[in-house]
């Protein structure tokens, strides 16, 4: 009787574990399955490097090069904001903040990491875009720059949180050894602590970048939406995520447009996959370097 019940529960748990696995793998399967038609129908290189994205033309022109460049541009812009500010803030929390400040700042940053992306988009559209339009005297504030700024701010808490974890896991003995040799705090920080935490900080940046590339609602609302290859930060752009979000509603199921949007999803998936693998690889190496085991 007792064994019987134990066995049933075990079988139940096993099947639920496999169900989870099924869903996790299912996403990859669906993305590939729904992307295959477009890759087999039109030349893959043409899809990737075509400069014309006119899905509603007859026949539709499905070149995603403008979308890829838009994503790259916006990501680069956002990183140039979130790396210095995010890492700087982490250094402050780790090095300058007292115990009391640390106790408030660490959870605060973590809580702020949870602000929904729609809120950044909303703020960007109503406050940041008009402001940027005025300052740079450009025709519209809904452009790559505004998107970069909003995404950059959005990613700061992620970068700060993970960087700070990396900094605080540097053994105290490293710091003491440096002080004992007569180094001052800033020398110790830049010559000992930052190098020791470098891979953890890199991990935080990669994860921040991964979040920026995949962010949808913010770019959908503030990037302006023009599907042309961007030549500067001051023009409207249409990154990959916002293309999916904006156009999926109007794409007829089974049409080349529909499959093309899934293919964009697959590319996004692969990009974040590479980012995550990179982050995992680096953080593994870094744990070994600090002698923290696997």
């Amino acid at each position: 009787m007792r064994n019987y019940k134990e066995k049933i529960i075990q079988i139940l748990l096993t099947s639920l574990a496999f169900a989870s696995l099924f869903f996790l793998i299912g996403i990859v399967f669906i993305l590939v399955k729904e992307s295959i038609p477009i890759i087999s129908e039109i030349n893959f290189l043409e899809f990737l490097f075509g400069k014309e994205w006119y899905p509603s033309r007859q026949p539709p022109q499905l070149g995603i090069f403008p979308l890829i460049t838009a994503s790259l541009l916006v990501t680069a812009g956002a990183l140039s904001i979130c790396i210095p500010l995010g890492v700087g803030a982490a250094l402050y929390i780790n090095e300058l903040a007292g115990i009391k400040q640390k106790k408030i700042l660490k959870p605060l940053i973590e809580i702020l990491a949870g602000i929904p992306s729609i809120v950044y988009g909303f703020f960007g559209m109503l406050i940041a875009a008009p402001f940027i339009q005025k300052i740079f005297n450009i025709p519209t504030g809904l452009c790559a720059l505004t998107a970069s700024v909003m995404l950059g701010i959005m990613a700061i808490p992620t970068v700060t949180s993970i960087s700070e974890d990396a900094l605080s896991s540097v053994p105290k003995s490293f710091k003491e050894a440096s002080y004992a040799l007569g180094a001052n705090r800033i020398q110790t920080l830049f010559k000992v602590i930052i190098p020791a935490a470098a891979s953890g900080i890199s991990t935080s940046i990669i994860l921040g970048a991964s979040r920026i590339v995949g962010e949808t609602m913010t770019v959908l609302m503030v990037s302006g939406g023009a599907a042309v290859v961007a030549k500067s930060f001051f023009v409207p752009v249409r990154p990959m995520t916002s293309t999916i979000a904006a156009e999926m509603g109007e794409a007829a199921v089974g049409s080349p447009h529909y499959h093309a949007l899934f293919a964009i999803g697959l590319i996004l998936f692969l990009i974040t996959l590479i980012f995550n693998a990179g982050a995992e690889h680096i953080s593994k190496k870094y744990r070994i370097k600090l002698g923290l085991g696997r």
Partner: peptide, 24 residues
């Protein structure tokens, strides 16, 4: 398999989940 799935799906853009939901 679960570890790889969990690690990699945690960072997948939410819009990609939307595509999955739509298709499935």
């Amino acid at each position: 398999a679960v570890r790889i799935g969990v690690n990699n799906l945690a960072g997948v853009p939410s819009v990609v989940f939307g595509l999955f939901g739509l298709a499935v």
